[in-house]
């Protein structure tokens, strides 16, 4: 057997010491009230099943980051005892953390699903894309993503985006219609009524589906703890050579070397989000276990993107602008 059953009642006690959510009162037998995590989990499974039932070729964007790992886990639960009935897609910027790629491949193998990798570097090599002056490749993912969606003839694309991540994401529907250029039109979204999702679309359009729209960062971590979900090691405190830039700790790596005026130091850090090495920052942290992280997130005073993403600081509406162009 793999990991021992999670004793969820025990974990409760340890995780609620410092955050704002009180210790639960044990419920009476036959009580039909669900916990917050159970409500969110069932909502997500319902969405995943709706999309699989109504679309012909769904695909899940899978980076190995915590949100996509959670969506994969939910998909496995939704179709148990059968296999996950769709494949995975990753847009590799060429700047990904090697330990995340390794984790990605292990996880894919464990679930017995197929992974397609679209590589930004192929596009840079033949000139379809050119490197940006600021070196970040995050915005460059859009074209390979749209090409991969078209090549796979995918009519629905699952993503792990959450509404609490950003003020533009806070506005997006659970099923979000995209035109043939992958564009999001925030002024003209389809009404989304009750839990009756309308996934109808015309040729060339596709739908992005966000099963964990209503989850917060804390919900995700509590769920990872409860379900004993494995993550890439860099989500937990570890020692790393870093330097300070844009008010965050950046990892020393071949694609993100320190400049001459930047001092490299060895610090104990962890990542709250995992993206492109060139624009994702680490935070000082001693949170070495999932319970530590739950505690840390519960009392954090800065949002995960604010703490770790340089690309969102470019302008007031950086995320909205990228999404309008077909980004996730």
């Amino acid at each position: 057997m793999r990991a021992a059953p999670v004793n969820t009642i025990e974990s409760t006690v340890t995780t609620t010491v410092t955050d704002t959510i009180p210790t639960p009162v044990p419920s009476a037998a036959g009580d039909h009230r669900l916990s917050e995590l159970d409500v969110l989990e069932s909502e997500a499974i319902h969405i995943i099943r709706e999309v699989v039932a109504e679309f012909e070729r769904p695909v899940l964007l899978f980076s190995g980051g915590k949100d996509s790992v959670v969506v994969l886990h939910l998909a496995a639960k939704a179709f148990w005892p059968g296999k996950i009935p769709f494949s995975l897609l990753h847009v590799d910027t060429g700047h990904n953390f090697p330990e995340v790629l390794e984790f990605r491949d292990e996880t894919v193998a464990r679930h017995g699903v197929r992974l397609t990798v679209a590589r930004v570097e192929d596009y840079l090599a033949d000139g379809r894309l050119t490197e940006r002056a600021d070196g970040t490749r995050n915005p460059l993912q859009t074209l390979p993503l749209l090409d991969a969606i078209a090549a796979g003839r995918h009519d629905a694309v699952f993503g792990g985006a959450r509404r609490d991540e950003d003020k533009a994401r806070a506005k997006e529907r659970i099923l979000s219609l995209r035109d043939e250029f992958g564009q999001w039109d925030p002024r003209n979204q389809r009404p989304e009524l009750w839990n009756l999702y309308n996934g109808r679309h015309t040729v060339g359009q596709h739908v992005r589906a966000f099963p964990i729209s209503n989850w917060t960062e804390l919900n995700v971590w509590r769920y990872i703890e409860r379900e004993n979900i494995e993550l890439p090691p860099l989500y937990y405190a570890h020692e790393r050579e870093v330097y300070r830039r844009d008010n965050m700790w950046r990892a020393v790596s071949p694609v993100s070397p320190a400049r001459e005026d930047e001092t490299v130091e060895l610090r104990t850090v962890r990542y709250r989000t995992v993206g492109d090495m060139s624009c994702t920052g680490a935070v000082d942290s001693d949170a070495a276990s999932v319970a530590d992280v739950v505690r840390e997130v519960g009392v954090s005073t800065i949002t995960e993107r604010g703490a770790t993403r340089a690309d969102d600081r470019i302008s007031e509406a950086a995320m909205e602008d990228r999404k309008k162009e077909g980004y996730f």
């Binding site: 057997m1 793999r2 990991a3 021992a4 059953p5 999670v6 969820t8 009642i9 974990s11 409760t12 995780t15 609620t16 959510i21 009180p22 639960p24 009162v25 419920s27 009580d31 009230r33 669900l34 916990s35 917050e36 995590l37 159970d38 409500v39 969110l40 994969l72 886990h73 496995a76 639960k77 148990w80 005892p81 464990r110 679930h111 017995g112 509590r222 703890e225 409860r226 379900e227 004993n228 979900i229």
Partner: peptide, 27 residues
């Protein structure tokens, strides 16, 4: 006893899933 390690991705529990946040509290 139906769930096992390979390759079922989730932990097994004997009891229905009970979790750490109070019930009936999402408003």
């Amino acid at each position: 006893t139906l769930v096992t390690d390979t390759p079922a991705p989730f932990p097994t529990t004997e009891a229905p899933l009970i979790s750490e946040v109070p019930r009936g509290t999402l408003f």
